[in-house]
Design a protein around this nucleic acid. Sequence first.
DNA 1: TTGAAAGCGATACCAG
DNA 2: CTGGTATCGCTTTCAA
Lengths: 334, 334
Amino acid sequence: MPTISDVARAAGVSMSTVSYVLSGRRPISAETSARVRAAIAELGYHPHAGARALASSRTSVLALVVPLRADVNVPVIMQFVTAVVTAARRYHHDVLLLTKDEGTAGLERVAGATMVDALIVMDVEGDDVRIPALGRLKQPSVLIGLPDDPAGIACVDLDFAATARECLAHLAGHGHHRVALVGPSPSVYERGTTYAQRFLDGFTDASAELGLETVAHSCEPGADGVRDCLAWIDSELPGTTALVVHNEDALVPLLDELRARGRSVPGDLSIVAVCPRDVATSLPVKLTSADIPAHDVGTLAVETAMALLEGRKAPGTRLLPPTIIERDSCGPLS
Amino acid sequence: MPTISDVARAAGVSMSTVSYVLSGRRPISAETSARVRAAIAELGYHPHAGARALASSRTSVLALVVPLRADVNVPVIMQFVTAVVTAARRYHHDVLLLTKDEGTAGLERVAGATMVDALIVMDVEGDDVRIPALGRLKQPSVLIGLPDDPAGIACVDLDFAATARECLAHLAGHGHHRVALVGPSPSVYERGTTYAQRFLDGFTDASAELGLETVAHSCEPGADGVRDCLAWIDSELPGTTALVVHNEDALVPLLDELRARGRSVPGDLSIVAVCPRDVATSLPVKLTSADIPAHDVGTLAVETAMALLEGRKAPGTRLLPPTIIERDSCGPLS
DNA sequence: TTGAAAGCGATACCAG
DNA sequence: CTGGTATCGCTTTCAA
């Protein structure tokens, strides 16, 4: 493996010149630069990451902490991950993957060892024990999600309250007055992640603002859960004409059940789902949906981390506005 | 951030002693060791990864290259990833995540920069351009999958040929003689990944050995694809009493279609699926299935990488034996 | 516009 | 069982 001094010798310049050609941190004559680049190419030189990290105390690596709970939606996580990796590469960074189950220790390990320049943490809970730990690190971090108290750490997420509002507004625009929310499974509410509650709060507020009659109920997984939830809705708000579904796993059994009952979508019942684009379009009825912009959130998280590293931008919270995509599951009131 | 010499001073020993306490590469008296550890804990010392990598030319990091094609099964990929990360941690290694779309350049970048000790590459194709590139690296690598020519690189995968054989043997054991294979979509065969072909070859061979009448056909995605495939099977092998389904996405529409036709499973038709445990159990009929042991394969890949790093074990191919799990979709010939 | 040289923080060899 | 120290390969300040 050639070193920087091999390159320097081959190009007939000093080590520092080679270094500056690579970093661009000081002007180099076009001619010198060309000679150096030629030598680099010819020798197949790659700067040694460890040496570079030691000398500069920057690693060009980002830590990404992912949940591996089965209870969260795996394809969505994967979308975050690929968005983060892809965006990181645009900034010449690589991604070190940590799992949430290592908890605080994992963060302290990679940060303490100076393995990473910044950390991006997914699946943040309302009262997440990792937040104080992150605050103690010398590296900046970005949360994907919104805890009760970010404690000065940057946050990025979809604006779930506004999303609920848009869903209701969309249905109201179609003339619906009685709308039910099919929520996530109870375990999601119990667990600390706040997005379910934020969505529910937005739903409740918007319902009042828009003068709608609404109910909301969590929905256990599986066909039975869906049936129970529908039964609950029927008894609590008879004459419901539209559903907002904030529960991906419920979608397939829900459509099955409605078909079995002979209720057509959107003829008898309109539906707005909150889910990634691809699941909305892969079902028998193409669902009007509020997108989960995993790609945008992941990208923004990386951009925020980079801004923090460069000292621009104070940490704060960025909630992305929702996007409703009209498809075939929303009709006028019949 | 305290350094090793801060620890040495605090403990009243030399730097080298601290280093040896940490690495265990030479005997240290219990007393000294205790003093050093106390100092480490008190100062909150973490060895600097870059410095360590520079001095020792080992990084304690593994590269993992994942595909991000939508066409592969995302939850299965995620299982590989979590298995690799978890296993790596048991060996005190972290995982740097690369995406397949960076191609050869990504491998050369992280290996050339000495960012990783070894590489694990998923979604290897029959004639994968990355294989010669991996051969040129100074770090060892492990392939998940089985290319046409591993060129001396270690491979780990499920034994798909044996899996096909077991599926057929299982059905033959239930008295079936006419069996059809519902294969992956044509795009999977066209793309270079070899597992589909290996499964098909195993299927064909075992069919002959067991004296069965079989046909095999690829299956396009979606309900239409399933209908076409079933129609093809009906015309080519009338009286088929059992299906081997090597196509996860076809499972839901297939069961739907059979139900629509009033054909019961396993009453009228037996099914063995090749898929991860959780999808086999989450369908309306609990499917008898051949497991995709993503967790085991990922773990074994890491263990192989570690063995290679320690110089034990020559690279070679390890194909994991299949496991058929009997559930509710296989009955006797009626 | 370029060069020389002092670290960065560990590891591991040479000594004792 | 423990110490001293050269060394790893690069960045960056100081000088020219």
